[in-house]
Nucleic acid binder design. Structure first.
Lengths: 337, 337
DNA sequence: TTGTAAGCGTTATCAT
DNA sequence: ATGATAACGCTTACAA
């Protein structure tokens, strides 16, 4: 059972291997008749070209690397799906590569990936893009890459992000519209960019509504359930407690809901709770969570499409893209007060 | 900036390329002195061998394929992690390959993967192993593979599974121990094996306790939230309703909790709810869910280790492995009644 | 212990 | 429009 090679096809079709190669790669200058004959033989022999040989001979890897660090599984899942589907459409594979960017050796491994020609391009998920020395080096090596929601958005490097600030603004405005005057805010990890953007959206909505910003309604969390529970617990202990709590993500919002229940109060009657991201969790808790949808899948898709343009040397009409968020209203914020 | 090749290293180290190759592959019969010199040069030149060339020359792909169909995110995430970590330790990559086993063309793509020499072995996640024609073909082609929780466990093909029946038995017994006499059971998708195993564990515990099996306490769901909600709603409508509901997975249990709340009752005071899998969701809902932990990560790890043994032609001491589940007690089942 | 030469199965070059 | 032949960068006989 030795594998069928391009030579077998060539012999059977009575053409040269180069002609078979031309058919394989859809090159021009092949007589329709010849093409048809070769294709028939390919079918007949169930021939599939060896990827390894293609890679070696062409110098391309036909795979794109997805660099990930500390991503939540919901985030990762959607990014991976978006990248994979787009890559597949281009005949590419995806190599998922976790990388602890705080360890120099791990950074080196990403560079090895490139030097080994294992990838033709890279996609960075946050906060992996914070490895600025790596990014710099890749830029110098002229390695194609794209970034999802990077911290740095001032350099002329490409990225795809979402409207974090606008999303938080929309949510806060919605809560204000429901009649809330005192809205708690649970911050996410300070090392990341999104929590700051979201906070500034909250802040702006508060300002525009003239309801006065209160420092003691801001609490810090780490995006995980437990910290959301703690944050909400402490907010409920503030004298004249907030009537609504807006959390940096859904998981903390779930924690906040638990905190409210544990304190013997109800959601949304006593306290309204809102999240961010619209993860599956949002629909799976009681009461279902009002939140902001972040179009992760779509972002990954666009980022990958752009990456292919860069790989192919095409011009990018938009180096920087922002895909809008969307307010998703559910029961956890209740009705007009 | 043309890439550094094995020839550059050989020249600089004043040895033949074969010697460099020997050092690279940790082969025997290299003088310590020579090895050291070659390694120095490798460091100095930051040389990394081309994977494509290695693959082509050796006929190995250094990649294992992970075949997935319809997996939940939590499941997939853990499997992928287990497979990747083990693969990485062996210097292997992982190629995630979704495959709708109901479509012949997709089955063909898996075979192409093999014929293209893109993978040295495969891991199947349920219910992808149900593609029995594919499995048969792979066996005939002598392609190494391993299966996670397969439906068929009678053939001498390798697999790694968990103790679904025992887990469900443990949970049911625990509920009975709390004083429950009428325990609803929400079934999962009938096409899969696990729901049946879990049901038979439930059934056995009921029998052993002599509390009488009641057909109308069994409802069918599809493992998703909404169906759990519906299933629980219908169970609560049964006259002399169950005091506990055991769901085939956590997501449906979350739905059941929502159903109880929506009907104005409380969990666990009025109805106890239990799940299966111990997904993150179990801790993120209120009240936190009593469930059975399924060691997905560990199973994937073992399955991959075994796959490498098969690839290397080593003997498998255990062709079939079952890793135990574990009862996780939280508030959703409350205390003794 | 080390080296020479012949593949591996493609793509690329340059004729024709 | 097609073909002969040389890469691609490594591993694998087989020598030495």
């Amino acid at each position: 059972m030795s594998p069928i090679t391009i030579r077998d096809v060539a012999k059977r079709a009575e053409v040269s291997i180069k002609t078979v190669s031309r058919v394989l790669n859809q090159e021009a200058y092949v007589k329709e008749e010849t093409r048809a004959k070769v294709e028939d033989v390919i079918q007949e022999l169930r021939y599939v070209a060896s990827l390894s040989a293609r890679r070696l001979a062409s110098g391309q890897s036909f795979t794109i690397g997805l660099i990930v660090y500390n991503a939540s599984w919901h985030y990762l899942h959607n990014v991976q799906k978006g990248v994979m589907e787009t890559a597949q459409a281009h005949g590419y594979n995806v190599l998922l590569h976790p990388c602890d960017i705080t360890i120099p050796q791990e950074i080196q491994k990403v560079l090895d990936l490139v030097h080994q020609r294992q990838v033709d391009g890279l996609i960075f998920t946050p906060p992996a893009d914070n490895a600025s020395a790596l990014i710099e080096e890749l830029k110098n090596l002229d390695v194609p890459f794209n970034r999802l929601s990077p911290t740095d958005r001032k350099s002329p490097l490409p990225y795809v992000a979402t409207t974090d600030k606008q999303g938080a603004f929309d949510m806060t405005k919605y809560l204000i519209g429901l009649g809330h005057q005192r809205i708690g805010f649970v911050y996410g990890p300070k090392e990341q960019r999104a929590p700051h953007d979201r906070f500034s959206g909250y802040r702006q909505a508060i300002s525009e509504a003239n309801i006065g910003f209160e420092e003691n309604l801001i609490v810090y969390g780490d995006d995980h359930f437990q910290s959301g529970l703690q944050a909400a617990t402490s907010l409920l202990a503030v004298n004249s407690r907030p009537s609504a709590i807006f959390c940096n993500n859904d998981e903390m919002a779930a924690g906040a809901i638990s905190a409210v229940f544990e304190s013997g109060m109800r959601v949304p009657e006593d306290v309204a709770i809102a999240g961010f991201d619209n993860t599956p969790l949002a629909k799976q808790i009681y009461p279902p969570l009002t939140t902001i949808e972040q179009p992760i899948f779509q972002m990954a898709e666009v980022a990958t499409k752009h990456l292919f343009k860069i790989i192919n040397g095409d011009d990018l009409e938009n180096l920087h893209v922002e895909i809008p968020t969307k307010l998703i209203i559910r029961k956890s914020t209740g009705f007009q007060r």
